[in-house]
Each structure stands twice: as structure tokens, then as C-alpha cells.
Amino acid sequence: MLSNNNFSLSDNLTIILHKNPNITELYLNNNTIPILHSYTFCNLSKLTILDVSNNSIQTVEQAAFAGLNQLTALHLQNNEIAHLDSSVFVFLKSLKILNLQNNNLGHFEIEVSLNLTTVTLFGNPWNCSCGLLSLQSWLNNSQLIIENEKNTTCTSPDSLKTQPIKTALLSNCNRKEETEAITKLYSSINSSNDTGASGYNDTDRKLSYSDFPPIGKSWKFLIGVFIVIVTTTMLIITAIKVPVWYRHMISYNHSRLDEDESGMFEENFSTDMCHFPPGPNTNENDSIVIFEQFHTFVPEEDGFIEDKYIDT
């Protein structure tokens, strides 16, 4: 028993704890501990109960409970904790009882899986806004017992005062939660880029993309609309332009005549000197010249036949 001794978890006390790995129950309540440092209890692998209630604890560091794989009950009541990251409990695979009564918690986001059977939350100034949505969802979707549930109520806003945090109506939170998730995702990407430049691996990151809720699917709808607009525009342009192109191409659809076909259009003339019986007024010395035109007929493209007459 180390309770009521005005301890503050100094380095000396931490060394003593590390030298006693067989401790199964540790009571540090009613001391003056201001902060729970990372790896303070890492060597107490057999510890099942840890009581640090009635202290002045304001900060719980990320790995404060690392190594406590067998811990089943954790008492943090009657402290001054105003912010608590649920990821500090990720090492507590066997934790069943969690007491956070009478702290300064206004929000408590549940980002990891907590397989608790009993939780105590009353006595905190809960702000029943969208920041409490993850806690409320966890309380309603798990089979745990909420100690003094009726007195675990909202302190703000005024419209929800005295309403149990488990059933308080948190309105207009879906869009805000999605926006906050996107903001966190971008921040995580930026920090990961900075971390990669510094030489750290992905496993060193505190958060992963899977920790955030899925982003809404409205962007898929916008992409679909854009594709439909582009496709429709291309079809309209094609329907307008194709007849013009066709007429343009057909106007040049001529074949060059072969050189040997040029003779088809030459006119051959021959002369024949014919003598008719002299008439009464006809001089024998006069002669009639008759031009015979031998014209090779070739149908033209317009379907008409052009006749040429012989002039005498």
C-alpha cells in the first residue's frame, strides 16, 4: 500500500516499482501525482488492479499504461483530467473496469476498441455537442454497464442540460464529423510527409488513416456528372461535323483519266469528193466537198448525248 503518502511518482519510486514485477495490485490513491508518465508501470506485467484516484493528475501520457497486459481495473476518479486520448488504453487488452468519475472531461473521443464491461463517467462537465458523438455511439452500441447512468448528464449546452449523455439528441453532427475527418486526414498526410523526410518509418506514426471514419461519396457523383456532360458534348459535335466532312471528302472523289482515253474525245474528220450529175446550172468544174464526221460517242457523267452536225 502506497496510498496517503504524498508520493508524486518520482524517479526513485519508479525504480522501486520496476524492481517488483510480481505486484498484482497497486494502490497509489490520495497522493500528489500531477502526471502519469509513459512507461511508468511497464515492468508490472502481472498487475491486475491500478488505483491512482484522488490525486492531482492533469495529464496522462500516451504510453502511461504500456506493459499492463493483465490489468482488469483502472481507477482514475477524483483527479483533474481535462483531456484524455482513448489511445492511451490501447495497451490494456484485458481492461474491464474504467472509472473516470469526477474529472474535468468535457469530451472523450473513442478512437480505439475498448472491451469494457463497466464504465463510470458521472461527475464530469460533459459538453453534449458533436464532439461527444463518438462516445455516445460507443455507449449505445456496446454491452457495458454505465455506473450511475441517470446522473451522467450534459452540462452544456443549456438546451440539453440534465439530459443523459447516452440519449441526448446531438443534432446536425454528420456533416461536421465528415469535415473534421477530412481535416484530420489531410493533417495526417502532411505530417507523414514531414516524418518521411525526417527518416521515420510509417510505424512511428501515432495515427493511421484507418482511425478516421470514411469520407462521404459525393465526389463520385460529381465525376459521373462530368463524364456524362463530356460524352454528350462529343456526340453532339460528331453529329454536326460528320455530314460536313462527308461532303468535303466526296467533292474530291475524282479519278484521273488515263492518257490513252484522251483519244476517245478527239473528232476524226475525213473528206470525200463526191460527184453528182451536173444540173442545168451546175458547172462540171464545180465540185462538192462533203465532210464526214466520225465521232466516237462516249456517255458523259450527266447522262446527255451531245450531237454535232456537219456544216456544208
Rank of each mutant, 00 (worst) to 15 (best):
G131C: 00
E147Q: 13
L135R: 09
T120C: 06
N193D: 05
K166V: 10
T117L: 05
N190C: 09
I146F: 02
E147F: 09
K184E: 14
Q163N: 13
S129P: 01
S159F: 08
A168I: 03
S171H: 09
N140F: 00
F122N: 14
C128P: 03
L116K: 11
T167R: 04
S159N: 08
T155L: 10
I182D: 01
N174E: 14
I189N: 03
N193R: 12
S192T: 14
K161P: 00
L132N: 06
E149L: 11
S187I: 03
T179Q: 11
C173Y: 11
W138L: 10
K166I: 15
W138M: 10
K150L: 14
S159C: 02
S156V: 12
D158Y: 00
N141F: 00
K184I: 01
L114R: 08
W138K: 01
W138C: 08
L169G: 02
I189A: 05
P125F: 09
S191T: 04
L160V: 03
L133W: 04
Q136K: 12
S187V: 06
S187P: 00
A181R: 12
V119W: 02
P157Q: 05
S142R: 12
L133G: 02
Y186L: 13
E177P: 00
C128L: 07
S137L: 11
S171G: 01
N174H: 09
K150G: 01
I182W: 10
L135E: 06
S129R: 06
W138R: 04
D158T: 13
S142P: 01
